[in-house]
Design a protein around this nucleic acid. Structure first.
Lengths: 227, 227
DNA sequence: TGTACATCAGTGAACGCGCGTTCACTGATGTAC
DNA sequence: TGTACATCAGTGAACGCGCGTTCACTGATGTAC
């Protein structure tokens, strides 16, 4: 039997048990898909419920209200990003530059994998509960630690101005790349062998930033040698 | 008389003439403000009309429908960005690097000046009329020309792969910086003398990217000298 | 300078719609004995 | 193993609301003569 006969209304997921079984996850996935399709402006709790094959009141059971669902998804997103950054860091081996580069690749890959979540994560002026706060801080810290390793700054010590600037630069590069990629500005890379190419592009672009930082460091060291 | 007596309902702008006089512009400004306040998800044509002191049907006269208004604002935004980039380019003087740096400063300043418009400009999968298409292409071209000058590539000639990569890197840096700044990630810079500091940070971060490109160029030249 | 008239810009009531949330409910599950 | 019961997960009808858009309209403006 073709799937079309099992699902007469493709907008409405079907189910033969009274209890869904994994509704929480289904709602999160549907939210992600809906955000990716229509953006934040196109999100609606009812549509998410519809896609999950559940009545409009069901989500309230798991998330309270619409805001609660979005906040849960954003929290999850930051946790996922943190994990991705740490995986990239591990893959990079012993060279801090390589580790940072792989973090960048993971950052962009995460955005591509969860475009809906990514758009949710960096909205201005959103009321932000403690869990979301903690999750986003953890992601930031993962990136910050990459920069720490680059400069050999231990975990407890605060970064100086130049190091913070380096962090801002690195973050800007990967964030901007991710954002532009999602906006379809590098569109051909969505198709064929484009994924590997895209990873290469992220590495290259991030490497330019790291090279620039190295050049700055060198200039600074030389001038202090002279003095 | 305090303004509160002149405007009993602050959400509803008032007017004593039947004709507004400059409704088109007022609608655009109100849209910008509303988008900046609430994001794309919080936009509504009725609210924009309310803020412009006009009936809900009035905007249709100028923009057809809600989509038309948003598209007009996005078009205007790209035209403004193009102008800003060209102004930055002019300010940069004769050094291509400085010109590109000032373009970056202008890019970020534009985003800060029109946060609502900026959010509108880079949404994925938006149906896009020919005017908007043209306006966004012009902005892209302004940035591309900055990169052309850096490499000495004349206007007609297409960029090679490395040059396109350089463009992507530069664009990513400034775009990411602008986006993160609007998301409040560099929050202290919104307040006191932060504006000048922020310009400095953009220049610095973009300069790292340019230094990295210069290093790459140098390495390439040397290796071809050897060969 | 005055008058008739076309055109333009905005009105306000009305429409149907999808939304978020509530509520009393019910079907299913699991636990105590 | 069976039964009573508490708890949990989802129902579906209902609510009030703000939305985008339409429509016949009207007040103001500008133009022709």
């Amino acid at each position: 039997m073709p799937p079309s006969l099992k699902r007469p209304d493709p907008l409405r997921a079907e189910r033969d048990t009274y209890h869904h079984g994994a509704l929480r996850q289904a709602l999160i996935d549907a939210t992600d898909a809906l955000l990716a399709e229509r953006g934040v402006a196109g999100f609606s709790l009812r549509e998410v419920a519809r896609r999950s094959g559940v009545s409009p009141a069901a989500p309230a059971h798991h998330f309270g209200d619409a805001q609660g669902l979005l906040e849960a998804v954003a929290t999850l997103a930051f946790e996922g990003l943190t994990a991705a950054l740490e995986a990239g860091n591990a893959r990079g081996g012993s060279d801090p530059g390589a580790r940072l580069r792989e973090q960048g690749v993971e950052y962009v890959a995460f955005a591509r994998r969860h475009p809906g979540r990514f758009g949710l994560m960096f909205r201005a002026g959103v009321a932000c509960g403690p869990e979301l706060e903690r999750a986003s801080h953890a992601a930031f810290t993962a990136l910050e630690n990459g920069v720490r390793d680059l400069f050999g700054v231990p975990r407890g010590t605060p970064l100086d101005a130049a190091q913070r600037e380096a962090l801002v630069g690195i973050w800007s590069v990967v964030h901007g790349y991710a954002h532009l990629a999602l906006a379809g500005q590098f569109s051909p890379s969505g198709t064929k062998a484009g994924r590997g190419q895209a990873d290469g592009a992220v590495r290259a672009v991030l490497q330019r930033q790291l090279d620039g930082l190295a050049a700055l460091e060198r200039a600074r060291t030389e001038s202090s040698d002279v003095a």
